[in-house]
Simulated scan of single mutants.
Amino acid sequence: MDIEKIRTLIALMEEKDLVNLEVTSKNDHVSLTRHYDAPAPTMMTAPAAGNAPVAAEAKTNIKAGSVETSPMVGVFYSAPSPNDPPFVKVGQKVQAGDTLGIIEAMKIMNPLEATQSGVIDEILVDNSEVVQFGQPVIRYKA
């Protein structure tokens, strides 16, 4: 099976969020499996100077209002590239479906999209910070 067919199968796995995919034809057999890292336990440590609070502290400091959480373990990026402006800023109005950031997982850039319309109240993680599954990332005004 040629590499383009394999890439197409990988894209299908990502699009449909499949963990396993097996394809057998007359001359070929391909079995693909995606492995997800289990979320690491959160450690209660004091943040280093200039760093954001650790995930456990961020979770306890959340106030009223809706929150967008990370759908996976990965690295959060607030902009498409280092020289570009961030996708969103505090006080900015967003619509459901707008890109709030990118989470890189397994060398794949996954957009973090707004699930609702609202005004950004707080960005709870820093650019290039590792985020855990379910970790609050963006909070909307109540």
Score class of each variant (00 low, 15 high):
residue 24 T to P: 06
residue 46 A to L: 15
residue 126 D to L: 11
residue 14 E to M: 04
residue 2 D to T: 00
residue 91 G to E: 13
residue 129 E to Y: 06
residue 117 S to M: 05
residue 135 Q to M: 12
residue 95 Q to I: 09
residue 131 V to C: 07
residue 24 T to L: 13
residue 97 G to R: 03
residue 74 G to T: 05
residue 92 Q to M: 15
residue 127 N to V: 08
residue 16 K to F: 02
residue 122 E to K: 09
residue 123 I to V: 10
residue 117 S to N: 11
residue 37 D to Y: 01
residue 131 V to Y: 03
residue 7 R to S: 10
residue 40 A to N: 13
residue 34 R to N: 12
residue 132 Q to P: 08
residue 4 E to H: 13
residue 13 M to G: 06
residue 6 I to L: 05
residue 106 M to N: 04
residue 36 Y to P: 03
residue 58 A to N: 09
residue 142 A to E: 13
residue 102 I to G: 05
residue 94 V to H: 00
residue 107 K to H: 00
residue 68 E to N: 01
residue 33 T to M: 11
residue 74 G to A: 05
residue 41 P to R: 10
residue 119 V to G: 05
residue 28 D to K: 07
residue 105 A to T: 12
residue 48 A to F: 07
residue 10 I to S: 07
residue 47 P to G: 07
residue 28 D to N: 10
residue 82 P to E: 07
residue 19 V to F: 02
residue 109 M to H: 00
residue 64 A to P: 06
residue 59 K to D: 07
residue 18 L to W: 07
residue 18 L to C: 09
residue 117 S to E: 01
residue 27 N to V: 05
residue 66 S to R: 09
residue 20 N to W: 12
residue 120 I to Y: 00
residue 99 T to N: 01
residue 72 M to T: 06
residue 53 P to M: 13
residue 140 Y to D: 01
residue 37 D to Q: 11
residue 115 T to A: 08
residue 11 A to G: 12
residue 29 H to M: 09
residue 79 A to V: 07
residue 141 K to T: 11
residue 9 L to P: 00
residue 112 L to T: 03
residue 47 P to S: 09
residue 30 V to I: 10
residue 2 D to Y: 14
residue 69 T to H: 06
residue 76 F to K: 03
residue 11 A to M: 12
residue 19 V to I: 15
residue 56 A to P: 05
residue 88 V to Y: 06
residue 97 G to F: 04
residue 47 P to Q: 09
residue 119 V to N: 08
residue 134 G to R: 00
residue 39 P to H: 01
residue 50 G to C: 06
residue 22 E to K: 11
residue 11 A to R: 15
residue 128 S to L: 14
residue 79 A to E: 02
residue 40 A to H: 14
residue 96 A to K: 10
residue 89 K to W: 02
residue 100 L to H: 02
residue 15 E to L: 10
residue 115 T to V: 07
residue 40 A to T: 14
residue 112 L to R: 02
residue 58 A to K: 15
residue 9 L to I: 06
residue 78 S to G: 12
residue 25 S to H: 09
residue 37 D to T: 13
residue 135 Q to D: 02
residue 74 G to Y: 00
residue 59 K to E: 15
residue 2 D to Q: 04
residue 60 T to S: 14
residue 133 F to S: 05
residue 7 R to D: 14
residue 69 T to K: 08
residue 115 T to S: 13
residue 54 V to P: 14
residue 100 L to F: 01
residue 29 H to K: 14
residue 26 K to V: 11
residue 107 K to S: 00
residue 78 S to C: 05
residue 126 D to V: 00
residue 56 A to Y: 06
residue 64 A to C: 09
residue 92 Q to H: 08
residue 48 A to R: 14
residue 129 E to V: 08
residue 70 S to L: 02
residue 120 I to G: 02
residue 114 A to W: 00
residue 69 T to F: 08
residue 53 P to T: 07
residue 67 V to W: 03
residue 128 S to V: 12
residue 63 K to T: 15
residue 106 M to P: 03
residue 98 D to R: 01
residue 108 I to R: 01
residue 109 M to A: 09
residue 87 F to V: 03
residue 31 S to C: 12
residue 95 Q to N: 12
residue 60 T to D: 15
residue 85 P to L: 05
residue 18 L to G: 05
residue 56 A to V: 13
residue 61 N to Y: 10
residue 66 S to C: 07
residue 27 N to F: 10
residue 83 N to S: 15
residue 57 E to D: 11
residue 66 S to F: 06
residue 59 K to N: 10
residue 139 R to H: 10
residue 28 D to A: 06
residue 126 D to I: 03
residue 28 D to F: 13
